[in-house]
Structure formats: structure tokens, C-alpha cells
Write a protein that binds this DNA or RNA. Structure first.
Length: 190
DNA sequence: TGCCCCGATTCAG
DNA sequence: CTGAATCGGGGCA
């Protein structure tokens, strides 16, 4: 059925009626030290990057329109940048892959703010809430974090609780832990 | 549309 | 440690 081998690119046939603008979609599985990730590109932009569940169902990669995934520059770019990011302790890697953020105005505001957090640094949910002008929306920020479609690149893992505790993570707290330590040059903290 | 419920939180008791 | 505050998002009538 679907080849889940890391690095494998799958091309999906165009679905009539979808992507009227001719914007193709392609996905690729990328292997990382903390599990496989699936990257999805549409219109030349990365629109999704998430950790694949242990037993990734074939349906996880459904509905991707046809595009020439094997020669997708954006997939090549994100794959390359992820490789650099994961292989370099301290991870000062700056991602340049064009992103396609899709969500409510509030979510977009949160995610955009997350992109401003430098690698190796953290912010609390409250700080993010204040930064975007809605000091009381602390929990809502948490929800928006959970709705992040582009893991690692949109660094929702850099948001922790005000008391320093790590807080939750859609990909699993162990991954959040790993990422924070990795960016902290492998130093243990807290 | 309105109502209700739920959170990757926070802070006061 | 417990409880209430606060607000965006989603489900449902």
C-alpha cells in the first residue's frame, strides 16, 4: 500500500475539483532521531510537518494531490534543514523553508509569535499571550499550540509553563524534552 | 446564532 | 494542592 520507508516520496494523483489554482501537493517521510515525520507541501509551501504515530495508518497520508514530489524543491529543502537541525547539538539552525500557515486569525498570531522565539530559548504561554495582545488568553494559547501543524519549524516546543515545567506537547512530552535539551546544547535544565 | 464544554495555563488561597 | 478565572475553538440544537 503506502511505503512508509523514511525518505520515500509518494505522489498522489490529482483529485478533480481540488486545487483549482493548479497547486500541487506532495508529501515525504523524513526520518529523525525522535521518530519519523511526514512533511506535506502545497503550492511550494510546507503546510504540515508532524510526527508519525508508531503505527501510522495509511490514511495518514491521504488526500494529497498530485505533484511531482520527487522533484519538489520545498520537500528537498525541509528535509535538508531538518537533517542539519537534528545533527547539530545546540541547534542554531534557522529554517528558511516557506511555510503555509492555515488557521484562525488567533492561531496565526500565536504561531507567528512562536517563530520569533530563538532556538535555545523558551517562553511561557502567558508571555506569548501578552506578546500578541491578549493577556488573558493563556489557555487559548495552549490550544493554539496544540493546533500547530508544523512541528519543530514552528517551535511550539519552546513554550513552557510559567513555573518552568515543560507543559504538554502533542508529539509527546518526551519529544518536547528532547528538543529543548537538544537546543540547549544538551545541557540539562530545570 | 447561541450555548456549552474543554483545554499543551495561571495564580491566589 | 485545590479551585476559580479566562478565552478561543468546536460541536450541537
Amino acid at each position: 500500500m503506502i511505503d512508509m520507508t523514511a525518505g520515500t516520496t509518494r505522489v498522489y494523483p490529482s483529485a478533480a475539483g481540488e486545487d483549482a489554482a493548479g497547486v500541487g501537493r506532495a508529501s515525504r517521510l523524513i526520518d529523525t532521531p525522535i521518530g519519523g515525520m511526514i512533511a506535506v507541501v502545497a503550492g511550494g509551501r510546507l503546510i504540515r510537518l508532524g510526527f508519525t504515530p508508531d503505527d501510522t495508518p495509511s490514511g495518514a497520508i491521504e488526500a494529497h494531490n498530485g505533484a511531482d514530489a520527487d522533484s519538489c524543491p520545498t520537500l528537498d529543502l525541509i528535509e535538508s534543514e531538518l537533517d542539519t537541525y537534528f545533527s547539530a547539538p545546540g541547534a542554531a539552525t534557522v529554517f528558511t523553508t516557506p511555510l503555509g500557515l492555515s488557521g484562525t486569525p488567533f492561531q496565526i498570531a500565536v504561531w507567528t509569535e512562536l517563530l520569533r522565539i530563538p532556538p535555545g530559548e523558551t517562553r511561557s504561554y502567558g508571555e506569548i499571550a501578552r506578546a500578541i495582545g491578549t493577556p488573558g488568553a493563556v489557555r487559548a494559547v495552549g490550544s493554539a499550540n496544540g493546533a500547530n501543524q508544523i512541528a519543530v519549524v514552528v517551535p511550539c516546543h519552546r513554550v513552557v509553563r510559567s513555573d518552568g515545567a515543560r507543559g504538554g506537547y502533542a508529539g509527546g512530552t518526551s519529544r518536547k524534552d528532547w528538543l529543548l535539551k537538544h537546543e540547549h546544547n544538551n545541557e540539562l535544565f530545570i
